[in-house]
Write a protein that binds this DNA or RNA. Structure first.
Lengths: 141, 141
DNA sequence: TTTTAGTTTAGAATACTTCCAGTTATAAAT
DNA sequence: ATTTATAACTGGAAGTATTCTAAACTAAAA
């Protein structure tokens, strides 16, 4: 797991300025394993930094995404979730409440032949499982 | 590949009414292998049926989704795409323009252990490859 | 036919995200 | 330390995609 300091070092190395807002957002993201949305992070950071803007959270997440510092998960119901753990891994998504958890399992290696690639220059792939989480199963009864 | 008539029969069997709008939307969807958005379908159907409403397209797609008659793909950039081919298959998505194509390859079987499921009741899984399509590669030069 | 319950329509409402203009702060240069 | 140039921040407006609403309409059953 990459640390907060490593992410910050990477940003500086690329010539971006370090600000208290960025540090707070990166820390909040790294201390949160629930795959928070931008708004979740905004609410967390606002407790320590009441004047921060939601736009700054979006800007910082976009910046992190560009340098490979966060995975943006656009899986269900219009709200993007962010994952600080950027190594390839499988996600498990609840189709009722949208909750996302990581699956601790080696990602199966899937290769596409040249024909299957259809001329695309491949960048990677995602595997997402769908299901109903324990909480929502309980609500069904 | 399931036909338009089979989809319509399925809707009737479940007690839904058949309307010219629904038929037109289902036909437009089945004749389109580009994974259209709701708006794409709206624009296509409007040529034959100028008074149709975008809301009807959304309603019909939601209805189809409920009976398993279409796959809703929420992969990139906020706009849902719809796929009339509902057998499990791999998708290839362009990260520059959002284009989606099907991959003709048997879907690898991936099993999760009880521990890996974390109490979820599984419903299925998706595999999505990301890359840059031939058109967008050309634009890069 | 008549009935009725489901469907369509247009536009309003909502939800998430991006954009914008003015202000402020960082980091480099002096 | 001070200055300076530029990047980043803020709050609110704007932009998209989708859902909601209420009135008018219509498919299908009686």
């Amino acid at each position: 797991m990459v640390t907060v300091e490593e992410r910050i070092k990477e940003l500086k190395k690329r010539g971006f300025k370090m600000t208290p807002q960025r540090r707070a957002i990166i820390e909040a993201l790294h201390n949160d394993h629930t795959h928070p949305t931008a708004e979740d992070l905004y609410n967390k950071v606002k407790r320590m930094m009441p004047d921060i803007s939601l736009a700054t959270v979006y800007n910082t997440l976009e910046l992190l995404e560009k340098i490979g510092g966060v995975l943006k998960l656009e899986v269900i119901g219009g709200k993007a979730h962010y994952d600080p753990f950027t190594e390839p891994h499988i996600h498990l998504v609840c189709t009722m409440c949208g909750k996302i958890v990581d699956v601790e399992k080696p990602v199966p290696r899937i290769e596409l032949s040249e024909e299957e690639k259809q001329g695309f220059r491949l960048q990677g792939y995602n595997i997402v499982f769908y299901g109903i989480c324990p909480d929502c199963q309980r609500k069904l009864n």
